[in-house]
């Protein structure tokens, strides 16, 4: 089955991973800007990173027939440095008209601090002023519940936001309901230990249905599995779910969400789908 991974950090992965993803049926992916594992020291470092995301990664993905899209921001972890964050936010508009740039992301919270909330709202303001879509990171582990609620508070307080164009990512059992109830899209990240497993993501689909739900691998430089979406497909098949339902979650839903971005140009694959996993 063809699929789209709506959240994966390919700058941290090898070219072999692109080849593996293509063999598994991945036809497109989107790569939000994130933390490199260390705090960058200057806005110039982010300009170089945005260049990599908008120029080189699409080329590398294209070697294997994968269409690459991206989101730009300074991530929540580095947003603790508000002055640096403001410098980075100021350069983002230089890149927003580049092909494949879908919007602002992954913005959000990490430790739910005042500085993080300040920079989050400044990113939101930029997205609204430039009519960009928004992709949001929610915090890890014990901070996720409070952070998700804070994020929803800030989003719902801003009457300018079109909720159909906002994806709140890394939802789990205790946060998914609030995100969907408020009218936003929700993403489930399939990780080996933290966040969701393929089985728990399938449980959430069975509980809430496929409307406005996405699954992603969020493959990055840490323990993660770039082929986690095919694991989810297999789990759904093992439970007897129809192909139409699975395809809706892993292909149609990302297309529907991404299609709201002016820079989203998608060429559907013109060859037969790979054999069932």
């Amino acid at each position: 089955m063809y699929y789209i991974d709506p959240h994966i950090h390919m700058v941290s992965r090898t070219t072999d991973d692109y080849e593996t993803l293509a063999k598994m049926g991945c036809v497109a992916l989107s790569e939000p800007a994130f933390w490199a594992g260390y705090d960058r020291g200057s806005a110039a470092g982010f300009r170089d990173y945005f260049e990599q995301l908008t120029a080189f990664e699409p080329k590398r993905a294209g070697w294997y027939g994968i269409q690459h899209y991206t989101w730009l921001c300074i991530n929540a972890k580095e947003a603790e440095n508000v002055s640096l964050a403001r410098e980075v936010i100021a350069i983002i508009p230089e890149f927003l008209d580049r092909p494949g740039v879908l919007g602002i992301g992954e913005i959000g919270l990490n430790k739910n601090t005042r500085n993080e909330a300040t920079v989050f709202m400044e990113h939101i303001d930029l997205a609204v002023r430039t009519d960009e879509q928004i992709l949001i990171h929610t915090p890890h582990l014990e901070d996720k519940y409070q952070g998700t609620r804070m994020i929803l508070d800030m989003l719902c307080d801003d009457g300018r936001i079109n909720r159909d164009r906002v994806l709140v990512d890394h939802v789990e059992e205790h946060t998914v309901r609030q995100v969907l109830d408020e009218g936003f899209w929700a993403g489930m990240t399939l990780y080996p230990v933290s966040k969701c497993t393929p089985a728990r993501a399938a449980d959430i689909i069975e509980t809430y249905g496929p409307e406005r739900l996405l699954v992603n691998s969020a493959g990055d430089w840490g323990p993660s599995k770039p082929t986690a979406v095919p694991d989810f497909i297999l789990e759904m098949r093992r439970r007897g779910h129809p192909e139409s339902l699975i395809r809706r979650v892993v292909y149609d839903n990302p297309l529907t969400f991404f299609s709201q971005s002016r820079n989203f140009v998608f060429n559907p694959p013109d060859v037969a789908e790979p054999a069932q996993l």
Binding site: L141, E142, D143, K144, Y145, Q146, E172, E173, H174
Partner: peptide, 10 residues
């Protein structure tokens, strides 16, 4: 169980 391991919403 997720809520048990979560900080309370303020």
């Amino acid at each position: 169980i997720q809520l048990i391991f979560s900080r309370q919403y303020d």
